[in-house]
Simulated assay, not measured.
Amino acid sequence: MTDTIDTIIEHYFPLDHVSTEPVPFGLTNTTRFVTVQDRKYVVRHYNRYTKSQDSLSLEMKVTSFLNELPLAFEIPAFLPTRNGEGYVILSDGTLGALVTYIEGAAPPLSTLADANALGQVVGEVSVRLREFGELKDCHPYTGIPFTDFYRLHPLATREAAAAFWETPPFPITDEQRRIYEESLASVEANRDALSALPRQVVHHDLLVFNLLAVEQRITGVLDFDFLAEDIRFLEFAISLNHVLHMSGGSLEMAQAFIEGYALYGGCTYEEMQQLRTLTRLYHIAVLHIYIGQNRSGKDNAAAFAYIANQLIERDNWLQCHEDQLKTLLEPLLRAVK
């Protein structure tokens, strides 16, 4: 893999005086920090199954658009190769690229101020991505939405997913199987209602692990790998789930997150009614990505169990706290745009 990383870097800089080091993030792609003459960059070798030329071009177009805006945080910018290309196509057909380095570390998510700051970032990103979608020439390719979860990984088709559950490659508990089947049935039963919800470009992965902060101020938003036009409110549902998971289901943290998000946008009554279904949809999508990764040879039993158990926990929480959560969401109904 070092040779592959070197090959990518060589398309940007001569390898003389270049050093690389591991990064503390990047589960899907192979990523390294690169230092050239005391200046730092990030090099990425993309996963062959989840990154195509179309999806990489979409990511470049979106991040270029965002970098032209006066945001409260930075977005990595793609560097052109020495030949003026936007990215590298390797001999095996996989892709690589070099982007700018942003200073910082993953922000904490332990106080109400942390949750509020995350809500503001999610709200601002969502508003800006909506503006991108309003451009007449935004991009002909719109990505693979999480609502189309049988296409998120080429090795996790409908038939492949069914085969996985029929003969799991690692132990699956009865409760994990039950919640998956129940969630899948719920999503399918609500297809018409989901398809009627507002749509726009969605990041799909606005978790603290994909953010950077300096002195507790969020300074960077990373990992636009799963960009796609999708249900607008899915962005909120994914990040709210993250806050609840990291806080042990704290209503106070959820409220702080919602109040931060409401500074930039809101939701319709119909979106609010589908929050539980959207949360189920998110977990199904991630599980399908993991099914594809497992079929490609990756040992991800622990990651799969982590998300399956998170789905059990979150679904129970949403059922038990339905009334309290609706009260907390009222500011979003007033703030809807």
Rank of each mutant, 00 (worst) to 15 (best):
Q216P: 01
T219S: 13
W165K: 02
S183H: 03
F65N: 03
E68F: 06
C320M: 13
E330S: 10
H153T: 00
P14S: 13
D315K: 06
G143M: 00
T20A: 03
Y282M: 15
L333E: 08
G220Q: 03
R151S: 14
S91N: 12
A117G: 05
A308S: 02
V99M: 14
L222C: 02
R217M: 12
A262F: 00
D38R: 14
E270T: 11
F209S: 15
D114P: 07
T157A: 06
H288I: 01
Q176D: 06
G297K: 08
I5L: 13
I8R: 08
Q53P: 10
N316Q: 13
E313K: 14
G133V: 00
P169R: 07
L197Y: 06
L222Y: 08
G119Y: 01
S52Y: 08
G292Y: 04
A256D: 01
A117N: 14
H11L: 01
G93L: 04
D137S: 12
F78L: 02
W165E: 00
E59N: 00
D315A: 08
D174F: 12
T219W: 10
L278T: 03
D225L: 00
P22I: 04
R158E: 15
A237E: 04
L206W: 07
P154Y: 06
C320N: 13
Q273S: 15
